[in-house]
Write a protein that binds this DNA or RNA. Structure first.
Length: 376
DNA sequence: TGCTGTTTACGGGTCG
DNA sequence: CGACCCGTAAACAGCA
């Protein structure tokens, strides 16, 4: 069984390591850790109530997740441990055995919330180590790091349930997608998943949902998977770019170490801009007979979209050049064991029955992680 | 009409 | 201090 200290040791903290157990010494505190609920939870000792418990969940229509695995009401924490086919803490690698691993290890019947919570369990380890500047806690709860103690700590802690989680939207989306059976979700499912887990996001929905949409579109690490004709509905599925695997290194979901960028996509964008510039130049020199030729290659309606049609992912498509990342398993979303990459997962559910993403695993990658190559 | 998706812009925070 | 990441707002287009 993993002890909380084992989890602490296994996760690279964003900043300082804080012993929340000692801070929340009072088990009756609203924000005490939940290890007392079930000893078998092991590492759950570091879990706090940023994650919604079942009791706090309002009745809401649970959408059916991709793959048809219905998401029921989250079970109590104790039930989670009891229903998990893999005893929590026993088969989980000390590092990198988070969402991705659990998402595949648990029985399909086990609701995805449990998986998510299991996965977040480790994430919260990093969470508890969040730097004051990053955490919504501010200086709160930082023990010796606390710049100014709240006048009424208990009252503060009670509001803590609905405090904003320290995860970026990209992290949340990544977690949501990773925990889904098919490693892809619709926009609405992502909304639901986030709201189910984090009460904070049940308010101001317009604001953060706009950010979610922006994140999905703007970040190359998310790819759109069109619906199959036999699965009509609104919106496409969203999956993780196969190359985006190590955005969150060392289990830290607070801030990406590297930003995933698809080089080919960038190149195409530059080419398009170049072409536009040439065209503008050409029109500006309309008196001349100069013939401007460009090398712009049209690769499809949306270079970030995959699986739309057999011809969509061709050799010119950025997706055609993707391959599963070399997994050294640093993120809790990935497993030491062979967790199917998002691409591999998608292969089994590709809407049109084409192994579109097979391309991804066969050809060289043009995707890369841009940004700080160095870890914390 | 509302949702989904894309894009641009801007400001704040973090890191080397 | 610059580069980068992130959150937010907003405008716009397409679609069910």
């Amino acid at each position: 069984m993993l002890t909380s200290s084992a989890i602490y040791n296994s996760i690279k903290m964003e900043a300082h390591e804080i012993d929340w157990n000692s801070y929340y010494g009072d088990p009756n505190e609203a924000y005490s850790t939940q290890s007392s609920m079930n000893p078998s939870m092991g590492g759950m000792a570091v879990m706090n109530t940023y994650i919604s418990s079942s009791s706090s969940l309002p009745p809401m229509s649970m959408s059916s997740y991709a793959g048809g695995a219905p998401m029921g009401a989250p079970p109590p924490m104790g039930a989670m441990a009891a229903t998990a086919s893999v005893p929590l803490g026993s088969g989980i690698p000390p590092l990198g055995g988070g969402l991705g691993h659990m998402g595949n290890a648990v029985s399909p019947g086990m609701n995805s919330m449990a998986v998510a919570q299991n996965g977040t369990m480790q994430t919260l380890g990093a969470y508890s180590g969040v730097a004051p500047s990053v955490s919504p806690l501010g200086g709160y709860g930082q023990g010796g790091l606390c710049a100014r103690a709240p006048r009424d700590p208990k009252a503060y802690r009670r509001n803590y349930t609905h405090a904003k989680p320290p995860y970026s939207y990209i992290s949340l989306i990544t977690m949501a997608i990773q925990q889904s059976p098919n490693k892809m979700m619709t926009l609405n499912e992502i909304y639901q998943w986030i709201m189910d887990l984090f009460p904070f996001y049940r308010q101001n929905q317009q604001r953060w949902q706009n950010s979610i949409r922006h994140s999905l579109s703007f970040n190359d690490c998310f790819v759109k998977v069109p619906r199959s004709p036999d699965k009509p509905g609104k919106g496409s599925f969203w999956a993780l770019h196969p190359e985006s695997g190590n955005m969150f290194e060392n289990g830290c979901y607070l801030r990406r170490q590297k930003r995933f960028k698809c080089e080919k996509k960038i190149a195409q964008k530059l080419q398009a801009q170049e072409a536009a510039r040439h065209q503008q130049d050409a029109s500006g020199h309309s008196g001349t007979t100069t013939c401007v030729t460009t090398n712009v290659t049209v690769t499809g309606p949306d270079t970030a979209t995959i699986g739309g049609s057999p011809s969509l992912v061709d050799q010119n498509s950025p997706m055609a050049d993707m391959k599963p990342p070399a997994r050294t398993c640093l993120s809790p979303l990935r497993s030491e064991h062979h967790t199917p990459s998002p691409a591999q997962s998608l292969m089994s559910v590709e809407p049109h029955g084409n192994n579109v993403l097979q391309h991804l695993s066969l050809s060289d990658s043009h995707g890369h992680l841009k940004g700080r190559p160095k870890l914390l």
